[in-house]
Write a protein that binds this DNA or RNA. Sequence first.
DNA 1: AGGTACTTATAGAGT
DNA 2: ATAAGTACCT
Length: 763
Amino acid sequence: MLLDELNQQQQDAVREIDGPIIIIAGAGSGKTKTLTCKIAYDLQNGISPYNILALTFTNKAAEEMKERITELVGTPAKYILMGTFHSIFSRILRLESERLGFVSRFSIYDTDDAKSLIKTIIKEMNLDEKRYTVSFVMERISKAKNNLFSPSDYLNSIEIQAEDRAAHKEQIGYIYQQYNRRLKGAMAMDFDDLLFNMNVLLRDFPDVLKKYQERFRYIMVDEYQDTNFAQYLIIKKLAALHRNICVVGDDAQSIYAFRGASIRNILNFKTDYPDAKVFKLEQNYRSTQNIVNAANCVIANNEDQIKKNVWTSNPQGCKIRYTNHDSDRAEAEYVCQTIKDKVIDGDNYSDFAVLYRTNMQSRVLEEALRLRNTPYRLYGGISFYSRKEIKDVLAYFRLVSNNDDNGAFERSINNPARGIGNTTINRLKIIAAEHNVSLFSAALNLPNFSSKINGTTVEKIVEFCKMIVAFSKTIHQRNAYELGEEIIRMSGIKTALKNEESIEAEDRINNIDELINSLQAFVRKEDDIIIDELTGEEISQTERTLDVFLSQVSLMTDADNDDEGDKVVLMTIHAAKGLEFPYVFIVGMEENLFPSLQSLTQRSDTEEERRLFYVAITRAEKELMISSARMRFRYGELVFAERSRFVEEIDEAYLEQSLDGKKSFPALHKDANDNSNRKKPLLKLPSKDSKKPLPTSLPHPVGGNASSALRKFEIGSRVVHSRFGEGTILLLEGEGDNRKAMVNFDVGGKKILVLRFAKLEIL
DNA sequence: AGGTACTTATAGAGT
DNA sequence: ATAAGTACCT
């Protein structure tokens, strides 16, 4: 029976089918299990899968949930409309696109595409690029869209205009206006538009609203604490008719305010739906008592929260271990060594996760892991889909699918080089603007327009356009693999890379081949039948076309392609939400890094950082290791850091401290349950107020070079470096801490190294 | 038009 | 440390 494996609170939540429901699910409280059981229970009670809408934050979460529901109830699960906000709404928008004046094959601009468009506009408006930085303008526009301010709302808002004027950036409204016009002209939407336009659709077309209200009789929203205003309002409108809305979340895990999410949505659910039934899942099944208690201590420092008591009946476990290290490298080495030791004792690599605040921290960890041949899997960072060569290929696909996509046109027209340079493109842009048509349309009809572009160039442009047109014509006759493969072949991208004959080019070719593989997988999908849950129709193999592929790929992230295997996992804390691991390292516990510098200016931001730390702690099942470094490389230079304030927020009853990473835990496994003599930390840390002066000279070189070794370096010495291998010293300069050597490495050539940091050893 | 060499800006999380 | 942009040369 479905309910047998659930505790009382979980059962209560599952049994409540109708009306507004909020489930506050503490970390590790079996949220996914409850949610999947709940949907299965609904289905068993006669609710049609066709009437269920389930919204998640990641594709992965949606897939996993669907899989689990299928296990419980079988085929009907296939018909449930379940996915991310962005993917579900993009599909609805494609169906209803003509209402908003879009083609159904509109393009989706990712952040890079959007930024380059904004940049173009700033340049065209002759604005000072120092004052109007792309990232700032982008943030303003994104925030406006997430709060449903159109360009005219933006320009008419006294408050917003005052803000912009105060910042001496009063042109942002006009940039926004132009940006949106250009998106429309390219038949494109950015990520925020998917939410904004969904709102427009439901606001301006009552028949559409009614249609989807009637369709979605039961609505579930996962991670409700991370919804922004635009998402909140869509949900509210869709649920207004039947009021069967079930939201699940944990205010303590709200970590996306930076993206416009409002913790208020979950805190105010009872206000919106006074008759809402509230269920709290407070028993943690994931972590040891020490971990749960430590997490509770940390989160208790936040003011904004729903009261709850997360507890566990799991074993007490060992204390959380905090270590401080000389440098980011030493910290990384400590992580590697600890993992190695535990693997020797029988644990798997995949039992470990290393979590960090910022993606840039992954580098030093990767280096250390590689050095020790420790298998790892890196999540995030430059995703597969944002690699240049992949974006190049996808630009071709986009252009074929949507000829008006100016961004895709500009990217493709001279890639690979066809002798169509900047001058030509600028002339083309002018023609397109004069005739108010897209670049592609202007290019295709170029012979009919008078222009300064010379004849041979015109021929090349027309030839390109004809190739694209030929592809576009067959887009619905051929499957994504056949067409995509041909586009790649005919574009000449791969040939150009082959001619480069470099290692990098080889990698790029491999990546393109991987993309071709994914086209093939998309077309073949072992699942005999793919069902479009939105329309209820089956999608045959021939209907798995390039535009369908593209519509999915634009919203795909790396995390969605999991490559399993026994590997240590490296990821940001944000990416780790919803996951769990037996052993977790949280590295970089330093002021100005975690919490980040930007977050310290506002209390609410600091609270968000604390929730982020809470999320990180609660990923751990058995053991948690947190660490910091006294200095680390940031932006290419060395910075010193103090221990994060968050470390102190963990009661010492649950924490074990050591200042140097190694050999400091004599009783690693034994005394875990012995609390009796642990009133004081093993080592007294300097209090945060007693600011120690920054060390003027470093205690020890990172790699352990004793200073005596420095003297032995001479011009002509043969040396070995941990990363670069063997080489010969060509030059020496500087004194003391600044002593540098130019080394000619046998592989890789000349490099200048600061001896204080470089792991150079004399052979 | 295209490629190379040098300069400069920029580093917070991700659908 | 790195990517992106610019200046300059072929």
